[in-house]
Simulated assay, not measured.
Amino acid sequence: MEKIKRTFMIVTVLAALALLVSACDDTLDVFQAYSFDLVTMPVQESLREGETAEIRCTLAKEGEYKNAEFFIRMFQPDGEGELKMDSGTVFQPNDLYPLKKTEFRLYYTSHCSDQQTIDVYIQDNFGQVVQKTFSWQDKRASEDITDK
């Protein structure tokens, strides 16, 4: 009886080891598409015609993949203005521009006294997209209207 118990124990341990060894996989999982977000400092809410607002941006990534590429584009649904990168690049609506830095500044210059809105899109080469919307109102123009 003792010999049967010992044999059964040895067979059970060997079976468990065989299962553990066969469950291991030598292939390496490489994760490429890490999620990210565009983080900004607070942006002023009022902007008069001709004034420029600075938008300080940081691309916050959850992981690092050396072949990841990021791009930026903008669209302006309301108002008229110009969005410029700190490198001097002036953005055209819906054109895609490479984003080489994770910390950068955008400068929006108002060209009207109406409410203005811009949508900034950051996307990576894996198809992930993050959108941020910025809006400004010309408070002086609205005060002039209410004073009349």
Rank of each mutant, 00 (worst) to 15 (best):
L19I: 00
L20D: 00
L20T: 02
S22Y: 01
S22N: 03
A23D: 05
T27G: 00
L28R: 04
D29Q: 03
D29K: 03
D29L: 04
A33V: 02
Y34D: 05
S35T: 04
S35M: 00
D37Q: 00
P42E: 03
V43L: 03
L47W: 05
L47H: 07
L47I: 06
R48Q: 15
R48M: 15
E49F: 04
E49H: 08
G50Q: 02
G50N: 02
E51G: 10
T52Q: 15
A53R: 11
A53H: 12
I55W: 08
R56H: 13
L59P: 10
L59R: 09
L59F: 09
A60S: 09
K61I: 06
K61E: 09
E62D: 14
E64V: 10
E64L: 11
E64S: 10
Y65T: 02
K66F: 09
K66W: 07
N67G: 12
A68C: 08
E69I: 04
F70P: 05
F70W: 08
F71D: 01
F71G: 01
F71R: 05
I72Q: 11
R73W: 11
R73T: 13
M74V: 12
D78Q: 15
G79A: 06
G79K: 06
E80Y: 14
G81K: 07
E82D: 08
L83E: 11
D86C: 10
S87W: 12
G88W: 11
G88T: 12
T89Q: 13
T89E: 14
V90P: 04
F91Q: 06
F91H: 05
F91K: 06
Q92V: 07
Q92W: 04
Q92P: 01
Q92E: 06
Q92R: 06
D95M: 07
P98M: 15
L99V: 08
K100H: 04
